[in-house]
Design a protein around this nucleic acid. Structure first.
Lengths: 189, 189
DNA sequence: GTCTATATGTTGATAGAC
DNA sequence: GTCTATCAACATATAGAC
């Protein structure tokens, strides 16, 4: 049963991650998750005592994802612009799935999030921002990338373009997102 | 009673606008509104049959706000950069009130919004985007503003910087938002 | 015309069955 | 250890009182 437990718990997190990007923290319920797993909604409480514990689990899983992506890009030896393009590609996928990024999702719902997880959202954002910042720094140093702002500021600009870009795309369509994406990359060379 | 009716209805919209920027459409309830007005939650249903009707009212009110702002700026005769700064100032106020912009709010909740209002969100975004676009165009023509992209693309970049900027500010603080704001203005000259 | 008492459904969560 | 029957609280919404 231990194997199955682990499976169920992982499945809950996987579905939770999908739902929070599709609907936001407040707009999905344990029932939405349990239905997909053919169990009762209350069963989710066994794996995650309350919804805020699930949210903490979801955020931790995202942090692991980004740490993993960072290591992968680091090991790839790709030029900085390619690393950034790989990163941006993740956002393009979100658009195709009618989803927004986890950062925009928790930021939009921030005032309603349980206190216990607010610190984790800060950590997640810092993690992602510093990833982008480092890659920009690297590209600037090698002369591969040219941009007027500091790497930190440029990272903020890029991240906000992407985060709100995927949000906008839900309403005004993928065309606007693609416009933003292309302009973004163009401005780095 | 007619005067009082109008008052109550206007008050409901005013409070609704605050709440949707603070918590999002799904995270506020008729009870949150009725408490502030010292009436019962069900009384709100008299003025707005259902929550989606209230949302429609809120969005229409925002459209009037932006049309009004547009006319005001147009009549001001200010240089384009000043007009944009006035526009950006609205976003700085949002940060101080721990709020996000209506566009980011409805975009984040878009997948859960009633079908009847989705078209209105598109109209609202188009309205705001075209306002910014026109001002950019005007500044470019007069040589006052210098930017590499088309006015439409530049408007998309600015709007996404602002929309996600205020979201980010909730979590990582106003400092990051101010950094974005300054970079934004710097890049137009 | 304006608002309240009440209904109905859904939510997150507890206690306990297997 | 894993999940289900059940609950109390809150959501939106209707019927009807004043």
């Amino acid at each position: 049963m231990n194997a199955r437990n682990t499976d169920t718990k992982e499945e809950i997190v996987r579905i939770g991650k999908e739902l929070i990007k599709l609907y936001g923290y407040n707009a999905f319920s344990y029932a939405d998750i349990s239905k997909q797993l053919n169990i009762k909604n209350a069963a989710v409480h066994y794996h995650f005592r309350g919804k805020e514990d699930l949210l903490a689990g979801i955020l931790e899983d995202y942090m692991n994802d980004y740490i993993s992506l960072g290591k992968q890009l680091q090991a790839s030896g790709l030029p900085a612009i390619r690393k950034l393009e790989k990163f941006i590609e993740k956002y393009s996928c979100l658009v195709d799935n009618k989803s927004i990024c986890i950062i925009g999702s928790v930021a939009s719902d921030y005032n309603t999030l349980p206190e216990s997880v607010k610190e984790k959202t800060t950590q997640l954002i810092e993690l992602v921002l510093s990833m982008v910042e480092k890659t920009l720094q690297e590209g600037k140093k090698s002369g591969e990338l040219i941009f007027p702002e500091s790497p930190r500021t440029q990272a903020l600009l890029i991240m906000t373009n992407l985060a709100a870009g995927v949000q906008l795309a839900r309403i005004s369509g993928k065309k606007d997102y693609d416009t933003i994406k292309r302009a973004l990359i163009r401005q780095l060379k």
